[in-house]
Amino acid sequence: MLYRQVKRQLINDIQSGFAAPGAALPNEKDLAQRFQVSVGTIRRAVDELVAEHVLLRQQGRGTFVGKLDRERFMFQFFKIVPRDRPSEFPEVRLHKFAKSRATQMEAQALGLHGNQWVFRIENVLHLQGQPVIHDRITIAAAMFPGLNQASFTARTTTIYGHYQAAFGVTIVEADERVRAELVLPDSAQLLNLAMPSPVLRIDRVAHTFDRKPAEFRTSIVDTRNFDYVSRMREMT
Rank of each mutant, 00 (worst) to 15 (best):
S87W: 02
V92L: 01
A141D: 05
A98I: 06
P86G: 10
L112I: 10
Q128S: 14
S151C: 08
E173K: 15
L147K: 09
R177A: 13
M143A: 04
A154M: 01
T157Y: 02
V172C: 11
H126Y: 15
Q116I: 03
T156I: 01
E173N: 14
A140S: 12
K99A: 04
R136S: 13
T157S: 10
H113M: 05
E106C: 09
R85D: 04
F89W: 06
S87L: 02
L125S: 15
F97Y: 13
L147V: 03
R101V: 10
R120C: 11
Q149C: 01
A180N: 09
I121L: 14
Q116D: 09
A141H: 13
A109Y: 01
E122A: 12
E122F: 11
M105Y: 07
P90A: 09
A109I: 05
A165W: 09
E88L: 05
P145W: 02
D175L: 07
Q108M: 07
P82R: 02
G146T: 04
F144P: 05
V132S: 11
E122V: 12
N115F: 06
A180S: 02
R120H: 15
V169C: 05
A150R: 12
F97C: 11
E122Y: 11
Q149I: 08
G114C: 08
N123A: 12
Q108S: 13
R179S: 11
T170W: 01
S100N: 04
A98W: 02
E106H: 08
N123G: 02
R136I: 08
